[in-house]
Design a protein around this nucleic acid. Structure first.
Length: 597
RNA sequence: UGGGGUAUCGCCAAGUUGGUAAGGCACUGGAUUCUGAAUCCAGCAUCCGAAGGUUCGAGUCCUUCUACCCCUGCCA
């Protein structure tokens, strides 16, 4: 048996991964001992003058505020905040907002909400580690000047097309720009003019001077500053030059004294420039050792799910779904509205692990994480999804005094007595699932069919006697007789063993409810595989709405509360549309079913 | 021969300096069950992309090969 670990959502010992191994080795080598922290982001001298960093490691989650977070980001969030938590470190929340044309405050707020909802915090050691790359623009501009002064950057005035043509190809070296060898003075003058708005967008760009013949295209004098006359969500119109990711990100990490800068695989080729830049700026006196290091892991691929920002945006704008928080969407807000819990999402992230392999995770892992979380915690209730009436034909014989209701007691959770009980009445007519009756039973069927005994959960054992049909032959009611002395909880009620148990809702006492039956949004494991348009993979049955009945104890449930509808699955009251007097439940996921299907 | 990565059970994923394949999910039996759920017990890779080689011994070292992913934005 493994030792329970309170740090994991599963309570199980956690599998290690290559990042943990790296951190273990770094820590064992005392790599960060004596590392200063100024209490806020800053340049090397500031940190060196500060006290020893109380955080053993520093990671960061650096989204660009240009869209909503999705399940793929959840993996990164769990990774970065999880490592910081497990290693007594800190994870910085940082908005990587260096492109004013794409970013917006609306996204900033939604991202903050999503991460806090997931249960993570960037408050530590009396500091709120919430940062914006845009607050570092002065430092970045200064860094660019340092590069220029050291002959490591130049202002290029080639057109974008010329730059592309001279960059070379994957197999051919690039050509050096004719403007590559301007003097430091001219570069400085031009760069300042760029900042001062004296040049039009696209006319000048600042480039790092590295190696146009490098086999790594990212080292062929990457552009690091461009002119953009755009209003920035944070800095307004203060700037008209903005740093590129390539240049900005390493500086952001260094200013924040990040120890482990974790990103996805597609940035692997960028690491040489990351190291080059920081080494240059360290040599120029801007930063000091230990410098941050970049490590890359494989992004999440989830079957039946799409995580491309562009495609998610398309689903919303073309109204294939009802918004970013549609329960069919893999966004954090969508998952939340669907009924996924922070614990379930964290458990999912623990189970999928972290590696550098480009792999696909089964959608079922996500569903099972939710089931494993909710099974132990969600209160039980009964609901009927596809109702047909069941008439208890001998009611009057069982209740000769004319009672029209028989009180039933049910636990809120079968394994947690402390959660209490619920009460409702059995009545002569109840709603049951249409699927719980078969006039001619298929092999192995143990529910209602003529002559079979079944228990009405928390009520009596009944014996099916047949059904009623309309003129077209459709079944309009199922008929059954109550077996005396079989009431749940009474002495001798288990004298007769039955294999089938049927859930039900009283016809007169059931409460009307809208239940939204959600399924996976796409029909193909890889919606856009083989060049297929992902829209063609959309599952038209991913949302089905039924108007039906739920047990009367659910009358005053708040929004956002999840239940297990017994024998059906996990459901949650809708965050937007559920209200007193208008019950709306979303199906999060079904229960496992080793028989039907 | 552009560069950078990855290949371990159906799906993920651990595998210290080479010492004789963790775990999770799935699945299969059995027990249990007033949810065909959950729970419990048991089973589940003589084999680590392929082929050679080194070694007493290789998933771990060497050689060659194969497959797949990423890179030619003044996006991130």
């Amino acid at each position: 048996m493994s030792t329970p670990d309170k740090n994991t959502a599963s309570g199980a010992a956690q599998t290690t991964n290559f990042l943990r191994n790296i951190i273990d080795a770094d820590l064992a080598a005392d790599k960060f001992v004596g590392r200063g922290w100024a209490g806020q982001p800053g340049e090397g001298s500031l940190h060196d003058a500060g006290s020893a960093d109380p955080a053993r490691i520093r990671t960061r989650f650096p989204p660009e505020p240009n869209g909503y977070l999705h399940v793929g980001h959840a993996k990164s969030i769990c990774l970065n905040f999880g490592l910081a938590r497990d290693y007594a470190g800190v994870c910085h929340m940082r908005f990587d907002d260096t492109n004013p044309e794409k970013e917006d405050t609306e996204y900033v707020n939604s991202i903050i909400d999503a991460i806090q909802w997931m249960g993570f915090s960037w408050d530590a050691n009396n500091t709120t580690h919430l940062y914006y790359a845009s607050n570092y623009f002065d430092h970045m501009f200064h860094a660019a000047e340092l590069l220029i002064e050291r002959g490591l950057a130049y202002v290029d005035q080639q057109t974008a097309e010329e730059m592309r043509a001279n960059r070379g190809t994957l197999t051919e070296a690039g050509k050096e720009s004719p403007w590559r060898n301007r003097t430091v003075e001219e570069n400085l003058r031009l760069f300042h003019e760029m900042r001062d708005g004296k040049h039009a967008e696209g006319t000048l760009v600042l480039r790092a001077k590295v190696d146009m013949a490098s086999p790594n295209i990212n080292m062929r004098d990457p552009a690091i500053y461009r002119i953009r006359f755009a209003e920035h969500h944070n800095t307004g119109n203060k700037w008209c030059v903005y740093p590129m990711y390539t240049f900005a990100h390493p500086i952001e990490d260094a200013l924040e004294r990040i120890t482990h800068s974790i990103c996805t695989l597609e940035f692997e080729d960028q690491r040489p420039f990351y190291d080059w830049l920081l080494a240059q700026l360290r040599d120029a006196g801007m930063f000091s050792d230990p410098l941050p290091h970049q490590y890359e892991f494989a992004r999440l691929n989830l079957t039946y799910v799409i995580t491309s920002k562009r495609k998610l945006m398309q689903l919303v704008t073309e109204k294939h779904v009802d918004g970013w928080d549609d329960p069919r969407m893999p966004t954090i807000v969508g998952l939340r509205r669907r009924g996924y819990t922070p614990t379930a999402i964290q458990l999912f992230c623990e189970r999928i692990g972290v590696s550098k392999g480009d792999t696909w995770i089964d959608y079922a892992i996500l569903e099972n994480a939710l089931r494993d979380d909710r099974d132990d915690k969600a209160e039980r209730a009964m609901a009927v999804l596809n109702p047909v009436k069941l008439k208890l034909t001998n009611w009057a014989e069982i209740f000769p005094n004319g009672e029209q209701a028989d009180r039933c007691l049910a636990p809120r959770h079968p394994h947690h007595e402390e959660m209490g009980t619920r009460e409702f009445n059995l009545t002569p007519e109840v709603w049951i699932e249409r699927e719980d009756f078969q006039e001619v039973p298929e092999k192995g069927y143990r529910r209602l069919y003529p002559g079979n005994l079944v228990r009405l959960k928390y009520g009596f054992i009944i014996k099916c006697s047949g059904c009623e049909k309309d003129a077209e032959g459709n079944i309009t009611a199922v008929l059954a007789e109550i077996l005396p002395d079989s009431k749940s909880g009474t002495p001798g009620s288990d004298a007769i063993k039955v294999k089938g148990v049927v859930s039900w809702v009283s016809v007169p006492e059931g409460i009307p409810a809208e239940i939204r039956l959600y399924d996976r949004l796409f029909m193909n494991p890889q919606p856009d595989a083989g060049g297929r348009n992902f829209l063609e993979s959309i599952n038209p049955n991913a949302k089905k709405i039924v108007q039906t009945w739920v047990e009367p104890t659910l009358g005053n449930v708040a929004a956002g509360v999840s239940f297990q509808f017994e024998r059906h699955g996990y459901f949650v009251t809708d965050l937007k549309d559920h209200a007193a007097g208008r019950l709306v439940f979303n199906r999060t996921t079904t229960l496992k079913d080793s028989w039907g299907k």
